[in-house]
């Protein structure tokens, strides 16, 4: 584990275009170890594309992604996940036919023959999954198929399940999107608690109250480029940011 405050995940000149439209352009940013970094910007400013580039879903046209001291550009998403980077999706994605508990177990990494011939779940894995499920209040639903959960429960399950691969850094794509204020508060408390336990977060979020309250560092994107970065008060005062949100 890197020392707190040193860069854990960073990109250098990341670029990606889709048929003439440059979604992410020469984007360099860093996420420090132990931080909760916010990534904000108007709709279509390239935040989700950036997530997809970092996690290996899209191949970058140019630029690099580093995790700790390792270059992870061009690796497969599963490889990147093994190296300690997990993510959630803006529209929750779960294994709908699998049970809540199985959804927790799939991300647990097993290597070699154990991955192929080992049992579906080991006792210690199940125990760890149950501890996490307890934290998000889903223990009693562990045998239910994920598809039968309510929207909020699905969101919580997705969040809990990506923690099962013991990531160093978690990318959250709108963790509070579409859920009610009670769950928003619950989610924020959970993120803070996990952060204290050593998990670093990079959060895309539209709810400004949440961002300003939760994050200790904020990166602002517009038109695929980073336009500002700093602590919440600094970013809030930045005329460039105000311009991006309010200007034409």
């Amino acid at each position: 584990m890197s020392a707190a405050g040193s860069p854990l995940l960073w990109t250098e000149g990341l670029t990606r275009s889709f048929g003439g439209i440059t979604a992410v352009k020469d984007c360099s940013l860093e996420v420090r170890t132990g931080s909760i970094t916010g990534l904000i910007g108007p709709n279509g400013s390239g935040k989700t594309t950036l997530f997809n580039l970092i996690t290996g879903i899209y191949a970058a046209d140019g630029g690099e992604v580093y995790l700790r001291d390792r270059r992870i550009t061009g690796l497969t998403p599963s490889r990147i996940c093994h190296l300690g980077l997990s993510r959630t999706f803006q529209i929750t994605r779960l294994f709908w036919d699998l049970s809540v508990l199985e959804n927790m177990i799939v991300p647990v990494r097993q290597v070699g023959l154990r991955a192929l011939l080992g049992p579906g779940m080991y006792r210690h894995e199940q125990e760890r999954a149950l501890v996490l499920l307890e934290r998000v209040g889903l223990t009693h639903l562990k045998e239910q198929p994920a598809g039968k959960l309510s929207f909020g429960q699905q969101k919580l399950l997705e969040f809990a399940s990506v923690l099962m691969s013991e990531p160093d850094v978690v990318l959250l794509d709108e963790p509070t999107g579409g859920v009610n204020p009670t769950i928003i508060r619950f989610m924020m408390a959970l993120i803070r608690a996990l952060n204290r336990e050593g998990v670093t977060f990079l959060v895309v979020e539209h709810n400004m109250t949440v961002v300003m309250e939760l994050c200790d560092h904020i990166i602002v994107m517009n038109h695929g480029q980073k336009i500002a970065a700093g602590s919440p008060p600094v970013v809030q005062q930045d005329p460039v940011v105000l311009d991006a949100y309010l200007g034409v």
Partner: peptide, 12 residues
């Protein structure tokens, strides 16, 4: 169920 998600959570 969801191949992309499986890859994303570390299934090769």
């Amino acid at each position: 169920d969801d191949e992309g998600k499986a890859e994303m959570v570390g299934v090769n």
